[in-house]
């Protein structure tokens, strides 16, 4: 994998979040005013309340997707770049790669905070008060800069 391909994976999640925000905002904006949107929502059994919840949770949903792409990149590097066959948990995986790549402690810590936030979202159902998506992608991007330009075949 090329490091640029890893960045492309994260950038795609960012673009999909933007597409999702656009789509939800158009439908939410029109559901009470546009008869066609209201009828379509009825056909699909989607309520305004569900759409509002979808809009509210869109960002944290995409933080989970972003982190999952980040994890996939690290696991690919672990296997294809470092030739390791083990499957460590995310924290030791991030630590181990950071040590091997002589990563700055600051960039590692910032990425760990996103990992912890991801855990909070999953286990404590937290929906507010954490990092926004933009902050998460920036921090994970800074971690990826320490990977080599290319690894594997």
């Amino acid at each position: 994998m090329h490091r640029s391909a890893a960045y492309n994976l994260l950038a795609r999640v960012r673009d999909e979040l933007e597409a999702g925000r656009f789509a939800v905002s158009i439908v939410l904006g029109g559901i009470d005013q546009d008869e066609r949107i209201a009828q379509a929502a009825q056909v699909y059994d989607v309520t305004s309340e569900e759409l509002r919840r979808c809009a509210d949770n869109l960002q944290v949903t995409f933080v989970l997707r972003l982190f999952s792409e980040f994890e996939a990149v690290l696991r690919d590097y672990w296997k294809e770049g470092l030739g390791r066959s083990s499957a460590p948990d995310m924290r030791p995986l991030m630590e181990s790669i950071a040590r091997r790549r002589a990563m700055s402690q600051n960039d590692l810590d910032m990425a760990h905070e996103v990992r912890l936030y991801r855990n909070v979202i999953i286990h404590e159902k937290m929906r507010e008060g954490g990092f926004d998506f933009s902050e998460c992608k920036q921090r994970l991007g800074m971690y990826l800069r320490w990977l080599p330009l290319q690894w594997g075949d």
């Binding site: 960045y7 992608k137 800069r145």
Partner: peptide
């Protein structure tokens, strides 16, 4: 205009 590593745009 997209920046790497920050992915800011």
């Amino acid at each position: 205009l997209e920046a790497r590593p920050t992915l800011n745009r």
